[in-house]
């Protein structure tokens, strides 16, 4: 058994998986994303078959047949999904369906950095009247207010009695 040969093929299975990963992460067309998934699965099944050769029994091959079955199921379901999504919005763009994610999230990952530290926003009131610091009360008005304050208790008792 050629050990290096199996090693090369294991790495090649990894290469196929990486190609599928890049395709899945970068592509925006739904169909090409599913094809990338199939590429990843074929890399995995290649690895399983090489393992079967290394271990010299059929376990890996049976598992590869399972992977093949699941890949076929996945292709059928994915196709049905694409067709029914296409009926609602005639586009294959995945970004057309990004309201299925959290709608408060920003569209592009760039804006995530703005989300990480939320700025606290307090409600602001419209300023009314004069600023007491920049417009101090004239002394005459001050005296009038003091006089009114001194008469307040009597008024207050009247109000209470009336009530």
């Amino acid at each position: 058994m050629n050990h290096f040969d199996s090693q090369n093929l294991l790495i090649f299975g990894g290469v196929l998986f990486a190609i599928g990963l890049i395709g899945f992460l970068t592509r925006r067309s739904m169909i090409l994303m599913f094809l990338s998934l199939e590429t990843m699965l074929s890399g995995v099944s290649l690895n399983l078959i090489v393992f079967s050769k290394i271990h010299q029994n059929y376990q890996g091959q049976v598992l590869a047949i399972m992977v093949l079955t699941i890949a076929a199921c996945e292709a059928a379901i994915a196709l049905a999904f694409v067709v029914s999504l296409y009926r609602r919005k005639p586009t294959l763009d995945v970004l057309a369906w990004d309201e299925l994610s959290e709608t408060i999230m920003p569209k592009m990952p760039d804006a995530l950095s703005d989300m990480s530290e939320p700025h606290e926003q307090y409600p602001t009131l419209t300023p009314a009247g004069l600023d007491p610091l920049s417009h101090p009360m004239p002394p005459s008005l001050d005296a009038a207010m003091n006089q009114q304050n001194s008469t307040t208790p009597a008024n207050a008792t009247e109000v209470v009695q009336r009530a």
């Binding site: 294991l10 790495i11 990894g14 290469v15 998986f17 990486a18 190609i19 990963l21 890049i22 992460l25 970068t26 592509r27 925006r28 067309s29 586009t91 294959l92 763009d93 995945v94 970004l95 990952p109």
Partner: peptide, 26 residues
């Protein structure tokens, strides 16, 4: 050709992730 066919989302990041994965596997 549509914009979603032409435009790729962050190919450099994807290539970096795949490279890290492949190096680990190797």
């Amino acid at each position: 050709l549509r914009i979603y066919d032409v435009e790729l989302t962050r190919p450099a990041v994807a290539a970096f992730i795949a490279t890290a994965l492949l190096i680990t596997i190797t």
